[in-house]
Design a binder for these strands. Structure first.
Lengths: 282, 282
DNA sequence: GCGCTGTCATACCCGGCAGGTATCACAAAG
DNA sequence: CTTTGTGATACCTGCCGGGTATGACAGCGC
């Protein structure tokens, strides 16, 4: 019952993702034959067929799907081990906080200020990342803690602390007739003539269907709205990046958004514990 | 930024746990010199000192502590990958459910019955384990899902579904004067003359202080109570294993215990999803 | 102080296996 | 039937993981 080596897992993930031995080998910086052999060995050692080689193409078996998912998690865990160990050794202690660019401005500012006021506060590095990337950064050790937003982000596997629940607002071009309304319903927001709701990616990177333009960060949204090409519905705290050409109107029936602090479940870092403590008292 | 091999992690964990290269090498089934060399290489590659070799003994540095924790998690993840892959390939699908021996009898029976009644139900193997072992079994892939009890078990890192919340009862020898009482308070239970409360291990394996005997499973508890040497306070559903020599009295102010279904956060197994679905409808 | 013992590090050797190159086998396309 | 693209096979080589023997050094008993 020998244990799998990370090398084998890396190879398998490459092949499973490319579904092509040649390209996978290239990505791994090696030749194709040893890669084929390594995968065969892996299959023999597990006693399981992972790939259906069907001349002209490779497909994952059910067991292969399982291994792909598990192997990714295991690889993330090992790289996280290396990263966190290196970080623990360097420069005393230091926290890396991942957050979506532009979101929860005031909350983040207050949190950092309050934490910095603590005696023995560690240095906090803020890592701005794209939508939905926080979980990945936490899992592979690039971040120690993250500000995430329910129900948008995937929190499974983390410890969390809710910080703030808030409604959402519709952001419109400043001169638009609806900009002076006191509030809107989702139905109204979805049906503004000439202003489709912009779509942003879901957890898996795909976009929901709809007429609006696809965007991938707040800067794109801001510009599209300022240009009068779309409207967007966002948490009220994302307000901070509003331009002069924007107006915000509360959306009465949009789902509430909770800003949450999340960190790896097994973390025992003292500075992190202190940051969480500060956050709860905010 | 090369990635760590599981072999290195295994070696490091052995040394970190033994704090002795010789014993660690023996445990790993190898000679001591190559182990020393491997650890040195690991330290060089990470650019971090993990161990303070201080003639006569080895001690972990702060970075070493971090790596020990992270390495254990990573190793669990890789062995889980192997186990789950093998299991996915064998015998169609099959679920392994871990539970504390003797706890939540009726609930477990109902759950298994309801699940078995489903069309396309997978085979469920019930794995009885000791107190607090469920989390480990889930983490290293020996189990797919577990029945755990809040606030006793460590649920960090898992998805969960609460099934049942209940009070606790004091279990006494059948003939004891208090056995006929309608209810007790914690203060009263803690102060029964000649009957100290038995202590069971906490998450880390240590015992809380107190006058009562230390026990490690329900059979020991049962016997101690039947012998008139101790009383215990347990969730009402653990009732099922009561002997004729026992009597149970509700404890009015004991913290409520919730029986919870827990599973690895990233699991995507269809039979598991079905089991969770059945559980929520229970 | 002088061995003795227990500990980790060093020196050196060897065999297996990861990786490379060349080639094969085969299926689909034309 | 050739061409093209694919993964598998055959075979070689060098590196590195592992073994043995030994060194360096701290504490201990006398």
């Amino acid at each position: 019952m020998d244990t799998l080596e990370t090398r084998e897992l890396r190879y398998f993930v490459a092949v499973a993702e490319e579904l092509h031995f040649g390209r996978a080998a290239e990505r791994l910086g090696m030749a194709q034959p040893p890669l084929s052999r390594a995968i065969q060995q892996l299959e023999r050692r597990l006693g399981v067929t992972l790939l259906d080689r069907d001349r002209r193409g490779v497909a994952l078996t059910a067991a292969g799907e399982v291994l792909l998912r598990e192997a990714r998690a295991a690889l993330d865990a090992t790289t996280a081990a290396a990263r966190r160990t290196r970080r623990a050794a360097r420069s005393g202690e230091r926290l890396v906080l991942a957050t979506k660019a532009g979101a929860s401005h005031e909350l983040l500012r207050d949190l950092l200020d309050a934490y910095a006021a603590e005696p023995e506060a560690a240095e906090v590095e803020v890592l701005m990342c794209g939508i939905g990337e926080q979980a990945r950064l936490l899992r592979d050790g690039r971040a120690d803690v993250a500000l995430v937003h329910r129900p948008f982000d995937d929190l499974s596997g983390f410890d969390t602390e809710d910080l703030l629940t808030e409604g959402q607002v519709a952001v419109l071009p400043a001169g638009h007739p609806y900009a002076t309304r006191g509030s809107l319903s989702m139905a109204e927001a979805a049906d503004v003539p000439g202003l489709p709701i912009a779509r942003w990616p879901r957890l898996d990177g795909t976009y929901p269907p709809g007429p609006g333009p696809e965007v991938k960060d707040q800067a794109q949204m801001a510009q599209l709205v300022a240009l009068g090409l779309a409207l967007i519905v966002i948490p009220a705290s994302a307000y901070a990046w509003l331009w002069a050409e924007h107006a915000a109107v509360p959306v009465s029936d949009a789902p509430a958004v909770t800003t949450t602090l999340a960190w790896p479940a097994h973390s025992r870092s003292l500075p992190l514990a202190r940051l969480v403590g500060v956050a709860t008292r905010l």
